[in-house]
Design a protein around this nucleic acid. Sequence first.
DNA 1: TAGATTGTTAATCGATTAACAATC
DNA 2: TAGATTGTTAATCGATTAACAATC
Lengths: 214, 214
Amino acid sequence: MRLVSDKTVGRLSLYRRLLSGLRQSPAQGIYSHELASLSGTTSAQVRRDLMAVGCSGSPSHGYDVGQLIEAISGFLDGSESQGAALVGVGNLGRAIMTYFGGRRPNLSIVAAFDKDPYKVDRVIHGCRCHRLDELPRVAASQQIRIGIITVPAEEAQTVAELLVRSGIRAILNFAPLPIRVPDAIYVEDIDMTMSLEKVAYFARQRAAETAVRP
Amino acid sequence: MRLVSDKTVGRLSLYRRLLSGLRQSPAQGIYSHELASLSGTTSAQVRRDLMAVGCSGSPSHGYDVGQLIEAISGFLDGSESQGAALVGVGNLGRAIMTYFGGRRPNLSIVAAFDKDPYKVDRVIHGCRCHRLDELPRVAASQQIRIGIITVPAEEAQTVAELLVRSGIRAILNFAPLPIRVPDAIYVEDIDMTMSLEKVAYFARQRAAETAVRP
DNA sequence: TAGATTGTTAATCGATTAACAATC
DNA sequence: TAGATTGTTAATCGATTAACAATC
């Protein structure tokens, strides 16, 4: 399979969800401009992304919806299912566990970790909560390669290093500070504080712009 | 104030948090490469961002930390405080409310909304939960210009349109589908499903790379 | 056929990076 | 002074956009 960019992978994830939600007959087609309109991109962008996963359409019928879903799934999911480890069973951590709870068979949170002894050994949303120092053992035994960090900022770096030592290859980081890991580890940051402050900035800016208009 | 890009605003938000966490003497300086190392960017990037908010440093002492925090705050926060409205008081919504609860006096969630009558009129994390149809009235009376969407995907578009009708200027969207709003409205998407699927993809890819190595 | 869409190449755009004189 | 950093301009890079022949 060809090498694709970070952004393309993200758009493919969105395309799949949009296509799955269509609920039209399997044989029906969809044009690139239709998918572009749904996903908020351009039709050229859509065609390029779909080409990257080996999909081709026809000028008369566009792309086959069922075939697209299958191709994107084959590209994103691979052959075997993947489990993720979540570290930090606070309010946010529990919400994330619920959010991803039993969504997809190919990708789910299979183990949670916390340093708080009161949370250990409880089952939250069908997922066992372990002691933090059991991470290497559990990650190895369950072949976990994905880590999710939902601990406070000051603990994020320590947890990141523990995840890396436990054999994790990619991290979804919710802590509001960047973590430093080896280049071989993929990190995706979700910095909600940054996002809210950006929104606040542009809300003020747009409001000022409108106020100036005659 | 000069016009800055979306990304610069995000980085400034991060710089401020990093600088606030330093806890060094107010008179002490910081070099661009130090801030770059903390934030995961380059020193040239840092200098360009700081120039955008009118900060200048000296070759001998770098940038004054206190002055930087003040300049970035002046740029991001503006003169008056802003309140945000959160729509969708589910697991994720409540976690977000806790997360941003009483953080900053300049920016906080001041009202929550849900269509579920059992949630209405309760106070969650010091924040009153209103009926969804009260959004226009509450937003107008409290001059709310920021909206946060934490409802399920299928309700996101309806809620987005209600927010726009209520005078909101910028939206933080947690729903896993893009929302369609007028160009004048700023939208920041946090698509956690996309992020997790990206992480899963690269975890698999990186694992495969390592496996191939001799 | 006519008309719209696909696949692919060339052009554009913006952001990042490199370079370097000015500064402390 | 010498050495490192700043501020600013030029070069590079990558991604997006435009263009257009091939296709149905």
